[in-house]
Design a binder for these strands. Sequence first.
RNA 1: GCCCCGGUAGCUCAGUGGAUAGAGCGGCCCCCUCCUAAGGGGCAGGUCGCAAGUUCGAUUCUUGCCCGGGGCACCA
Length: 577
Amino acid sequence: MNLKQQLDQRISAALAALTGQPDALAMVAYSKSPQFGDYQANGVMALAKKLGKNPRELGQLLAQQLQLDDIVSKVEVAGPGFINLFIKPAFLSERLNQLDHARLVAAAAQPQTVVIDYSSPNLAKEMHVGHLRGTIIGDAIARTLEFLGHKLIRQNHFGDWGTQFGMLITHMQELPFYTEGKIKAELSDLEGFYRAAKERFDTDADFARLARENVVHLQAGHPGYMALWKKFIDVSIEHCQQLYQRLGITLTEQDIRPESFYNSRLPQVLELLDQQKLLTVSDGAKCVFLDEFKTKEGEPLPVIIEKTGGGFLYATTDLAAIRYRCQELHAERVLYVVDARQSLHFQQVFTVAHLAGFASASCKLEHLSYGTMMGKDGKPFKTRSGGTVKLVDLCSEGVERALALVRGKNPETNLDDADLQHIAEVVGIAAIKYADLSKNRNSDYIFDWDTMLSFEGNTAPYLLYAYARIRSIFRRAQLDASAPYIINVEAAEEQALALKLLQFTEAVETLASECLPNQLCLYLYELAGLFMKFYECCPVLKAEGLVQQSRLGLCQLTALTLQQGLGLLGITTLEQM
RNA sequence: GCCCCGGUAGCUCAGUGGAUAGAGCGGCCCCCUCCUAAGGGGCAGGUCGCAAGUUCGAUUCUUGCCCGGGGCACCA
């Protein structure tokens, strides 16, 4: 149990005993200012009101009865009835000395089976900036839940099936150089290939007709078309996996469960809905109508399961996926990291899934939506010529800019070119990822190279630098960074840092429940800031004996926490930069 | 028209029903006798979109309105 929960539980119990209200809540929160202590309990005011008592008197009574001497050095009643709690330095030291350095965070008390659907690009096109947020944010959430001990199942719901593939295989088939090697070479520029096919589809009526016919052949399982399709998909998957590797994304080929995986399960979705009398035929399409959704004309809005003339849509696939995830993978929680524009779709699909029993009432289906990536002009992020920015190019540009920066900061360095290149790769990728993770995912976010590569403020370079600096302390002094050091905090700066270190667990747990990685980013930034202040005020290498040991211990734990925290976000640290 | 998300300092963003709403950038000023100044400290900067309501207490919850973005029947 983390410190906040521990305080909350004990104060709630004391409050219940004092007032005879079994459901009394202490409402423990962080204090905003040091003068109000480290934590504060705010529950007294509400309870006093409810009981018609004077809140300050109730607060005084509670403060007298609280038995928190093992944790707290001072309890004071302040303002209208706040209970301010000052954590004992000895308690901080003791807790820090007990930490398991390999984890720093306890495993979840109740592990769940969690399915997370993220990244899920459309294989028809090359990955572009539109796929970045979901991939990065999803990966951070996945890593964190997994680390906490949940049974985490990643699902990369690739778009590998649908009308565009008719167009693509028709274009492939008609290429004069349809041979193994040449096809593969041609597909090395997936984006160009898609554009060429689209161009023909839009301008050549015969081609378009043929493409539509070929979709039907493909979906009927025609071997020749299937082979072409498979070839295309394989190249496309390889392209995605390369990007994942460069970006440090944990998705592997084993996590791929594309749309086509559900093909054989679609008819069953239709049958089950029909059996439950949920289907209505409207304009020839088989639909589920839900009272809570309306079209722009004010008519009931259907969820279309099968379109007029046959053929399934993405709602059908998503319903089949929910059945699979809940009933075969036994998920207790299913997370969808998908952009905000699809929120209506997910509301509908989740409602139908619960209604039809595809997901039990206890199975939580959550759409973790995120906003659009904007350019500095506040419009969706594009290249100078107005095209979509490829992820490959984005990574390269980030690394190039980082390299220039690292070179500039190290004019006379002992680092060779390979070292610099490595540092640039880590910093560049980290900057891109962290810029995205550190903002609340719900809002749109403005992509700006200068801000994300700055060493100031809440940025990846600042945190990586903080970590490298600490490592450098041990390296310079030739001290063992993994040796046991006994912490004994005294100075105010040490106390503030120690408390923050203890709160790492709370930050990680919050990320797991709220799925907002920016909260962990903020924690790490504040930790790094407190460390810098500590380091300014409290000499480490110049200190002696037990004081030095203790301060080294704080340095060590700060480094471990930064490394662990960045690791959960999918960012690797550097020993030197 | 309905639904979803947002509106907080000049800019980019935090903010769990609680005390005096916080960071960073940009502006002005100060600090290298432990690590890498890629750092630290200070000053200035706010009708938390507007108005009601609930509450002992609202930036936070409710409702209405204004502004911006997105979505709303066979694409995903």
